[in-house]
Each structure stands twice: as structure tokens, then as C-alpha cells.
Write a protein that binds this DNA or RNA. Structure first.
Lengths: 142, 142
DNA sequence: TTCAATGCAAATGATTTGCAAAACC
DNA sequence: GGTTTTGCAAATCATTTGCATTGAA
């Protein structure tokens, strides 16, 4: 799937550097919605010269170019994904873990919205408690 | 609606300070999903002693107590709301403005999800371009 | 009176930026 | 070869924390 990425970069005249390819591959093969720091930590093992700043810059440009997305979160730390297929996120409110979930086809973009807003895509998160945390925290505040 | 807040604080034994009340009122009367900094800037005009740290602490405790919520965003800056009714967000991908939108009642929590995850609520954002930005940016990257 | 909440300032954590050197086309 | 991207380090921005003081119950 990365040759597709390479081809597409060339087609658009976007420079294909070792770092860009590595960051894209890291995202594409990792469905855990890693943070920039996580991507950096994983890649630097094999790419000793890699800098944190480049990872941040690359993550931003990949998003601008439509190769990946920043996932919306509640905790303020950026999380990224290369999976652009229509899907939803299961978000654990205790540990913050984000898991992909097939999109409910019944959920569609609204037609009319106020103020000339043009809907383009949905971002659906299902907030809840993951299996691990359920066992750990049990029930309280009931 | 703030007397309700006051009553509820007393009932639960949560101390009702001038600052807490001010932050809660600021959120309750403002549907623009302000950041902590915005809340602070607005309140400090009338409450000269108010500190930024208290605003952050209060916003967190209001959330813990179920009086308000942190809205999930894509830009890493915390945004808050006191509107806990079931609703969705229209999010402009250019200016980041968030507007409330009535929830589609047809959208419901999924029954079965993998890994023992227990769904509790949905967080739906409709990403798009707001009227102002549409006029400003026009269409590109088509 | 007592304990939790506040204000201040310093610390932390995430992300961005300026600039010279290296890499891509 | 010319321009873009990188690495490094310093800067910035949002948020948190330690601690003495204040204030609500």
C-alpha cells in the first residue's frame, strides 16, 4: 500500500523522502491511532537521525495532502490515522484507547444545516468503557 | 439555570465558590464552546483576582461532577460546553468554529461491539465548511 | 474552626519555528 | 543546481502543579 503512496506523491510533485515514507508506513500499519511521540519513538530505533520536529511536520503535511488524518480527541494530545475509509471510533473514557469500528450505514450526513454550513464528512466516536477498564474500574458513580 | 447548579452543588457537598459559579455561568450562557483561555479572559474583566489555574481546575472538576463536558476536537486545544442535552456539532475545518446541531434521533448506540467494550454515548461531529469560510476560501484541491 | 479551593509562579508537556546543512528532482 | 526538507535547539502555547493563603461551611 506504500507503493501507492509513493506513486501518488510523485504524481502530485510532492517530494518523497525516506522520513515521509517511514512516517506514512508507520501510520498505515498501526491501527492504534498513535501520537506523534509514539510514531517518533518507534521510527527512531531504525532511523537514528530522525527528529521529532520532522515527524510533526510530516504528520501535518500528510494531513494537508489527504493521506492521513488527525483524529479528534478529548485529551488534547494529537492522534493520527491513515485509515481514511468510512469508520467510527470506539473511545474508552478511562484509558483513552481508540479502536476502529465499522461505520453504521444508517448514519448519514444531514441535508439542511443552518448558516450556510456545508457538511462534508462525519466524525463519529462511540464513548464508553473498554473491556480492560471495565474489569479494572468496575461500576461507580452510579 | 444557575440556581439549579447551586442547589445541586450543595446537595452533593461541593463547595460553591464565586469562581466556580462564574465559570459555570460563562459556559452555560455561551454556546460557542469556548477554550479555557477564552473563559478566563472574559471573566477576569469582572473578577480581577481570578487566576488561569483556577479556571482550568474548575473546568476539570465541573466535568468530573457531570456539569459540563470537554468537547472532542482535532486541534488539541480544549473546548468546553455546559449543554449536556443530546446534540451534535458542526465543525468548520477551516476556522474550527463549533456550532450545536440537533441530534438525529435515528442515530443510536450500536448493540454489539468487539472486545467487551460497553458503549455509553455518541459523540458526533459533522465536519465541513462554514458559511463564512466558504465565501473566504472558495473551492480548491478539487 | 477546618479543610478544600484559590492565586501565584514555576514546571511540564506538546507542538512549532528559525536557520544552516543535507537531500530530492 | 535550485529548492524543499531535514535536524537541531530554542521558542511558544496549553495545561498542570507546589505551596502559602483565603474562604465556604
Amino acid at each position: 500500500m506504500c507503493s501507492r503512496f509513493a506513486t501518488e506523491c510523485r504524481r502530485r510533485g510532492v517530494r518523497l523522502t525516506e522520513q515521509r515514507l517511514a512516517v506514512y508506513r508507520a501510520l498505515a500499519r498501526d491501527a492504534t491511532h498513535p501520537t506523534a511521540e509514539t510514531v517518533y519513538a518507534r521510527l527512531r530505533v531504525a532511523m537514528l537521525g530522525l527528529s521529532r520536529a520532522s515527524v510533526y511536520r510530516i504528520l501535518e503535511s500528510l494531513e494537508m495532502e489527504g493521506f492521513s488524518r488527525r483524529v479528534s480527541t478529548t485529551d488534547g494530545v494529537g492522534r493520527f490515522e491513515a485509515n481514511l475509509a468510512n469508520h467510527q471510533h470506539l473511545v474508552c473514557r478511562y484509558c483513552g484507547r481508540i479502536t476502529d469500528f465499522e461505520a453504521d450505514p444508517g448514519i448519514t450526513l444531514p441535508k439542511g444545516v443552518p448558516g450556510g454550513f456545508v457538511p462534508e464528512r462525519l466524525d463519529v466516536s462511540i464513548i464508553g468503557t473498554c473491556g480492560k477498564c471495565r474489569r479494572r474500574v468496575g461500576r461507580h458513580n452510579a
